[in-house]
Design a protein around this nucleic acid. Structure first.
Lengths: 206, 206
DNA sequence: CAAACCACCATACATCTGTATGGTAAATTA
DNA sequence: TAATTTACCATACAGATGTATGGTGGTTTG
């Protein structure tokens, strides 16, 4: 059985996981710099310990050759910037304290952010309470994309269509009439494009 | 405006994207080896062209310092191994031809695979047609996890509970009675644990 | 046709990267 | 108390890595 990591080892592993989440793998030197070590050997010895305990797998002789093995770390906490509940104002957490466990698989697209869905008002788009929408800030959404927008201080999550002189926001549910925004209406602002919806099944224990 | 990539440049970029999706970044040498070049300079010149056209950003002097910029490539195709439609047999595609566009953000956890959901028979778990479930093969699911299992050749996606002498599969919908499997029943096999559900909002154009 | 681009090659080189080895000091454990 | 583990240091080195420079041959394009 793999033993427990020491405090220092855990911090180093967390750093590697964070880097991996950015699509990067740190070198020994980069890890050493991060923790103020003057020497790569120190890092190397820590990595050897971490590997011995079964949390990573290193490719010898290959630079940045660190693979994560740890099943326990399948999830990394990601900051959630706020909440959307269609109709209500868009809540942005002042300090982004709340986090959601995204799979380690989930490397956020650059500059995109997460919003937690509250309430079932988006259920006609098959989005439910507790779901996390991945939002890519984009000043120019393409037609047909689902966007998060603010309309007169109320948050909406709708499908975006740009017509000649106006913008239309369609609901997934055809029974609802589209919202029509005339061009240059100042109370309207696109927050971003909903890239996807992720629902974590492991932590939602029934 | 960034120009079009040439055929060769596109292939190299695709290779980098694939590697990034594995949580790795290739070196010039690795790219050269992949394409049969005898020289890293060839790769370097291609990368310079790709960077000039605005698809990547390179960190000079830093090994494996390639960042993807391309918004068009926010998604990478991932093989889908099969389909789940609760009640029906688990369909595994013989050649895994079908693919789903996962966000570039999505680095699959090791050994996990994707199953496409077909039919609305899982809607009591808020999973719908077109959704992709991320399955982590795991011989020992923990209580309360949602699992994909095969029971008498039919696929089920249920919440898993292990009792003393039996296994219970609960539906999200409390109206449905749990399925009870006595220990050592041979017609039952766990396929894996559902780690999460991802729904791509961009490609599903209404 | 000349100029530009494309797709490759070879050689040379400074720096980065991981490794090897040996040492110090403190805390923990047997 | 002795042995082990943890956490750091320094120096040295081979090979990996990105870069610089210059060359060949083919294809587009003005």
């Amino acid at each position: 059985m793999s033993k427990q990591l020491t405090n220092t080892q855990q911090k180093i592993l967390d750093f590697i996981i964070d880097k991996k989440a950015e699509g990067k793998v740190p070198t020994l030197a980069e890890i050493a710099e991060r923790f103020g070590y003057r020497n790569r050997s120190t890092v190397r010895q820590h990595l050897q310990a971490i590997e011995k305990k079964g949390f990573i797998k290193r490719n010898p002789k290959i630079s940045r050759g660190i693979d994560l093995l740890t099943e326990d770390k399948l999830f990394i906490p990601r900051p959630v910037l706020g909440e959307v509940a269609a109709g209500n104002p868009l809540t942005i957490y002042p300090d982004a304290i709340d986090t959601v466990d995204l799979p380690t698989i989930a490397r956020m697209p650059k500059d995109s952010f997460l919003l937690k869905v509250k309430g079932d008002s988006l259920k006609d788009a098959y989005i439910f309470t507790g779901d996390v929408v991945i939002v890519n800030p984009n000043p120019e959404p393409r037609n047909g994309q689902i966007v998060v927008a603010v309309l007169d201080d109320a948050a909406v999550v709708k499908r975006f269509f740009k017509k000649r002189n106006r913008i239309e926001l369609h609901s997934e549910n055809p029974e609802y009439e589209p919202i029509v925004i005339e061009k240059d209406y100042s109370g309207f602002k696109i927050v971003g494009v909903v890239v996807g919806v992720y629902r974590n099944m492991e932590t939602r224990v029934g």
